[in-house]
Design a binder for these strands. Structure first.
Lengths: 370, 370
DNA sequence: TTGAAAGCGCTAACAG
DNA sequence: CTGTTAGCGCTTTCAA
């Protein structure tokens, strides 16, 4: 099982390797006759280029690294990954997948490995530690973060959580709800090693508080539940929390007519609590979520604030690819015309993707006061 | 931004590249003093091995290709992918991700690209066409299929759908249900280009039919709905189908006390139909699913037959890795002792992973006859 | 115990 | 238009 090399093809066609290379990349002059011969030699021999050799020689791999924080099984991450893969594929890039499991050490090792493999760029679908992102940057590899920014020096593709949550509240308010509950996640420090970290829950909560205030509704602490996850049975954390917190809300604020949950997952938990109590959605209580991951699969289908996960992945990968492409063009230009206008650095841009309210069947007009 | 090569480290330590290579791989004799010097030279220079060059020289990449059939956003596929990545990582392999989008052409291109990149093995999370799997095999690369086998020459990691579905039926029967509905997917041809193909729905249906028969319950066609998906609004197909088929079942067989749905996704759709009719689960009707993907997130949590998705991915990757490892050991052994006992070929094994009934809250004793 | 040297398979000047 | 040639950065005999 001997590998067929370019040289073999050349011999078979009776030309030099340079010529074969030329016809493969259709670059440089090759007479029609020779091209013909080479092409059939390629076909006859079943030649398959050795990309490893090519990468070594060209000093680029046309590969993107994708570092996930572990929960590829979470629809959000998965959908982002699909977007990354799609963008990469469209530009001829392939994707090398790593999973940090939310562990900073594994994340560092992933980056190290990616750097050894000389990938052209790295996308973090929710980085765990900013310094690992910096590690890539220091090696001269463009890195892009998704969902939250941990490293100021890298561009990030995010969503305006405050705006999205505001829209959710607006929807509830417009439907006449005044007694609105909130089920949130804990606010963790940004560089904390565990998943929910984000600081994002806080933004969503603030939108809740501010929307109430703007509507002239006094803030009532008993209508809000947020705190640490109870240690749960598998899963990503959030489901059991949602159920438990919903139950608590039902006890401490039984008069609420709507709940805003911090994520679809938490909403799913809330649904379970409501279902077992025989409380009807949306007749007795309206529920609104965030993410649009589980939302379509719940009964009734959940009204939620959609994050454009695919687009976020797509955009992030595109940014990374653009960075390498620009860098090449840049150094080329540098060779050509010294003193050309300095290009603007889009390096540290914060790209906001728009959220969108998706109204389904879990929200309805507030019941009339009894 | 010049890359630091092995040669640079060697110069810095005042030794040859061979020696540096030796200390890096701790192989061959190196005096303690020299090792010391080299190690600090490596540290001081911030040397990072160029894996591409290494791969070219060693003629192996320590990389696995993972070809998905498109729906990475489907929890089943995602979970399998996590298993693959985990197994790979544990053995020092990395994973190159491709997405065929269920398109045979893209699948072929993915395999071609993977072969060019000289991956050591390929895992198909649900191959689309057997001949694409064969393509890898022909190139001498071990390939493993997951979920269904399209290529006889490759090992596959699957589940006994008939047994799993039988267990589900047994559960329902034990709970006293006699009037049991079935919501299925269409039976498509194996080499059909579209997703649900599988032939798997058929096995699950047959288990349903046979279980009824074994229990002495006459088969009633009106309690069964299966057929082509209505063309739907995004998603993977199954949700809307589940809802529509459940409604149909409610009309044509209003006396059923339980339904077996062919997947959790279809069950989710069924839940929606039931919810909007105000029919209580499991008080009025029991529902059981298959997969254990969405099951935990539904209200009430769905009783289902779990497929060990992570394990399937893990096992498949392990098989692929074992195949390359064996091949190496094999040829080494061949060099050493000609005429050694011929190793058994596990190449075409069909690995069955066990399903498991997970009882949650969607199934209960059949209501007493009125 | 260490070094010199010959490539792995491909590309890209530079000649012709 | 085509061929020659010098490597890309690393590993690995073979000698010393």
């Amino acid at each position: 099982m001997q590998e067929i090399r370019l040289k073999d093809v050349a011999a078979l066609a009776g030309v030099s390797t340079a010529t074969v290379s030329r016809v493969i990349h259709s670059n440089g002059y090759v007479s029609a006759g020779v091209r013909e011969r080479v092409e059939s030699a390629i076909r006859d021999s079943g030649y398959r280029m050795n990309a490893v050799a090519q990468e070594l020689r060209r000093r680029k791999t046309i590969t993107l690294g994708l570092v996930l924080h572990g929960a590829l099984s979470h629809p959000f991450v998965a959908e982002v990954a699909v977007g990354v893969e799609q963008a990469a594929a469209e530009q001829g890039f392939t994707v090398l997948l790593f999973n940090s499991q939310g562990d900073p050490d594994r994340e560092r090792e992933s980056v190290e490995e990616l750097l050894k493999r000389r990938v052209d760029g790295i996308v973090f679908t929710t980085a765990v530690q900013g310094k690992n992102v910096q590690l890539a940057l220091d090696a001269g590899i463009p890195a892009v973060e998704i969902e939250r920014r941990l490293c100021d020096a890298a561009p990030a593709v995010v969503v305006d959580n405050y705006a999205g949550a505001s829209e959710a509240m607006q929807h509830l308010l417009t439907l006449g709800h005044r007694k609105i509950g909130f089920i949130g996640e804990p606010f963790l420090d940004d560089e904390a090693p565990r998943l929910p970290a984000l600081g994002i829950p806080r933004e969503r909560f603030e939108a809740y508080r501010d929307a109430l205030h703007a509507a002239g509704i006094p803030f009532d602490e008993s209508r809000v539940v947020l705190g640490p996850y109870p240690r749960e049975l598998g899963g990503w954390g959030g489901l059991e929390t949602g159920a438990a917190y919903m139950r608590r809300l039902l006890t401490q604020a039984p008069d609420i007519t709507a709940v805003f949950t911090v994520s679809d997952l938490v909403a799913a938990g809330a649904y379970q609590a409501l279902y077992s109590r025989g409380i009807l959605i949306p007749r007795q209580i309206s529920v609104i979520g965030f993410d649009d991951t589980f939302a379509p699969y719940l009964a009734p289908p959940l009204t939620t604030v959609r994050q454009p996960m695919f687009d976020m992945g797509f955009k992030a990968a595109s940014l990374a690819i653009a960075a390498v492409t620009d860098a090449e063009a840049g150094s080329a230009a540098l060779d050509a015309t010294v003193g050309s206008p300095v290009s603007t650095s889009p390096g540290t841009a914060l790209e906001f993707c728009p959220t969108r309210l998706v109204v389904r069947e879990s929200t309805a007009r507030a019941p009339a006061e009894p």
